[in-house]
Design a protein around this nucleic acid. Sequence first.
DNA 1: GTGGTCGGTTCATATACTGAACCAGTGTTG
DNA 2: CAACACTGGTTCAGTATATGAACCGACCAC
Lengths: 269, 269
Amino acid sequence: MSSASKALELLSLFSKAKPEIGLSEMCRLANRDKATTYRHLQVLEKAGFVEQIVTSKNYRLGPALLQLGRMREATVPRTAGAESAIATLAEKTGETVHVTVLSGLTLFALMSRESLRHSTRAVIDITTFPLHATASGICAVTFGPDELFAEACDNFKAFTDLTPMTAEALETLIVTARTSGIGRSIGRFEKEINSLSAPIFDQTGQFAGAVSVASVASRFTPELEDTIKTELITASREITKSWGGVIPSAIEKAWSGAMSSHQELDTSS
Amino acid sequence: MSSASKALELLSLFSKAKPEIGLSEMCRLANRDKATTYRHLQVLEKAGFVEQIVTSKNYRLGPALLQLGRMREATVPRTAGAESAIATLAEKTGETVHVTVLSGLTLFALMSRESLRHSTRAVIDITTFPLHATASGICAVTFGPDELFAEACDNFKAFTDLTPMTAEALETLIVTARTSGIGRSIGRFEKEINSLSAPIFDQTGQFAGAVSVASVASRFTPELEDTIKTELITASREITKSWGGVIPSAIEKAWSGAMSSHQELDTSS
DNA sequence: GTGGTCGGTTCATATACTGAACCAGTGTTG
DNA sequence: CAACACTGGTTCAGTATATGAACCGACCAC
């Protein structure tokens, strides 16, 4: 592993819960030597990626990230085009919404929104979404580039006892997603959290990301699932449009098929 | 120079004018070997700091920067508290406004705002402000930690023929800034661009950054300069307050002194 | 005083980075 | 069509650069 990646890894140790970290603690978190970690932090500080708080000697994320983030959004406007869609999605479903973007072989969290309707809600605070264990990840593997399947298989990790751990198990989920146009994760990333996800496409016609809704299992009724699916599709269409893409006809077809079949189930139940 | 810094340096090659860069071009810009640059880009891509555009093979800034930028703003709210102040500052002066933040020994651009009043306006699109050649930089050296003076002296670079190039020349500017509480740069960074700047402080009582107004020399009358100073002081007070700091009494005193003396000049002219 | 932290530094060791030379692919050009 | 000038990407020997155990001084609790 390159020294540069090791340095960059340190940045991902910061979180809402841990916005500032001291040297020793960072060594423990990163499981690395103190001297090495210190040098890495020096490099990051010189580049403005972290800054040291004068009083506490702790480190926190630096100002250069703001500029770079702004420049990223200026060159590839993603959040701007998704904001209104996820607002209405959270509003209509009453659940937590996530938008992810695919970059290379990694599915990154782009933004999220929690509905205020319920006091208990799904909170998923991660920076990259595991491909095999999340609804968004299943979407990526299903509708994204083929290499993602191998990538997913190389990174099987059991988050719950429902997490798929074999290529065959994953394949099953993919088939379901392909026929319905919707990714599903039923307690596969976190116990008691069920998620549904729809793919988003960009101007190159490629899979660009996913929008997903995470709900707590106790209120995940078939009716709610149906509502979420409908709203997800609307949101996906809207975000795809604002990202300059079009929904492939195969997926539009899968959506209409899945919805009608599901509505049959619904009326029969 | 560490390999990690070399990799991070690549990120600063992106700009509004050059939002995507190919491998060969990046080698030229960074003045580095192709193999090395390629490996660095691989590392950055894996971390989500850049992404490769599938069609053109070019690289652009990646989605991880958005998350990190958001998290930085969440842990240290800086832009949020400065937004309204710089809006009114741009509005009242009709000129271009910049806010910078000090991190370590570097003065980073935080945000900027251009007034629409004039068709010609000062455009300064840099990510770090040179300490010796900009009004914000002079503010930092004057009101910030002492080490900045040495740092400034180690990085003398002639942007124009007015750029100070010796410790003595810099010292003169610092004395002026200290007595007036305002940093000044008259064509020292760019010909025909004059800037004024006021320091900002945070909750630790330290110098945290600067707010500055850049104007084109042709309309930089004593009256405009006076307006800018007044509005800068107001903006600095407002931003300092929202960043949780207080203006040191010495600076408040310098401001009132400078303003009154200037108003005398004003009435006499 | 003792022992536990902490942030930061040193230096011999050896690992991982470097860059010239090399592909293969894609226009351009005459 | 063949020579050329570009791409983006790969290889491998040589060495520059990263590494981590041990160390330091400062701080804190007892």
